[in-house]
Amino acid sequence: MSFFKYIKDSLWTILYFIGVICTINLILISSTALNKSIGDILYMNILIFSISLLFLILHYIKWKNSYKNFRNALYNKEDIDDFLPNGEKLEQVLIRETIDFKNEEKLRETKELKEDLEEINDYITKWVHEIKIPLSVCELIADKIEEEELYDISEELRGELERINFLTNQVLYTSRASSYSEDFAIEEINLYTLVKSVIKNNMNSFISKKIEVEMDNLDFSVFADSKWTFYVLDQIINNACKYTDMHGKIKIFAREDEESIKLFIKDNGMGIPPKDIERIFDRGFTGDNGRKTTKSTGMGLYICKKIASRLNFNIEVSSQVSQYTEFKITFYKIADYFNVTKM
């Protein structure tokens, strides 16, 4: 607060003081000979004014210093609890009591919100497990259709079932993403084994679109959470299948340097427009490709980026329209993963 603002806030006190001085002056003037006392009265007024101004400036400096850290914390959006004024003045007590009240209020709201989210997550988890039962039954039906040699119908049904399964798992992982730190375990993972599992999970998509998969130089071990890393690769490879034309090609390979192991997933599909590439990890963003092909939720890559940031690996993408799209996932060496345990 500026000095002039402080003067404005102290206006009534100053007016009271001026009133008292004026009253004293009137009494002195009326009770003594004016020609004998005017010099003494002026001297007294100058002296009182000087002392009062000095007192006002010193009090302003003291007052400002007592709230300096608190004010800076507010402006810098820092935690203000460590900078609350600790004096016993009424305004200082009120500030502390107000902050305590608002903290308790926010804690109650946070607790209620957390309980509501936990209920929703529990419901989603149970629903996902329940929906997998009819999905399994549909798989058996597809097998029976194949036995009747109705391969086109069976292939179409399996493709839709794979998509339903993919979207169901996406719902499950999205619901868990907010409480991810309670559900991870860093371990050594073989990239070849992990990629092979993801490809197997998307096999129907590869077969239906006759997409060639080329894997090269994947025999590396990285440190990550296997379940969540599987989800990230599954999202990226599933997208590669979705946006690659018939008889397309997806190449998956890895490279190692002193600091990291980089996994590349490259397809020769439709590519990503330059205006969209900076936003593909934004929540709910679908872009031109998402609107042209299938109805996209815009959540898959957003969750991937969120998981990557918490697991301390990095995802980058480069693309050229009608040429290729390449995702680069950088897994840092083990020393960097100590940061994950601090989350």
Rank of each mutant, 00 (worst) to 15 (best):
P274K: 07
L233V: 00
I207M: 09
S221A: 15
S2C: 05
I307E: 02
M1V: 13
E97F: 05
I80K: 11
R279L: 04
I265D: 04
I18T: 10
K5W: 07
M215R: 09
E130K: 15
I51L: 14
M203I: 15
I7G: 05
F184C: 14
E188F: 12
Y337C: 04
G87M: 01
E130R: 15
D143E: 14
V317Q: 03
D116N: 12
Y67G: 05
D267G: 02
N204K: 03
N121F: 14
L90P: 04
C304W: 02
D219Y: 06
K126S: 11
I7P: 05
R279A: 01
T286L: 02
E258P: 01
I261D: 06
S221N: 14
M246N: 08
S221D: 15
L233Y: 00
Y173T: 10
V195M: 06
I14C: 05
V232R: 01
N69K: 15
T341E: 02
N35Y: 07
P273Y: 06
S208W: 04
L28I: 08
K8R: 11
I80Y: 12
F55L: 13
G300T: 06
T244D: 00
L15S: 12
N289H: 02
L34A: 13
E326R: 08
I21T: 08
Y16F: 09
L117D: 09
I133C: 04
L28W: 04
H129I: 03
C304F: 00
I61P: 12
C304T: 12
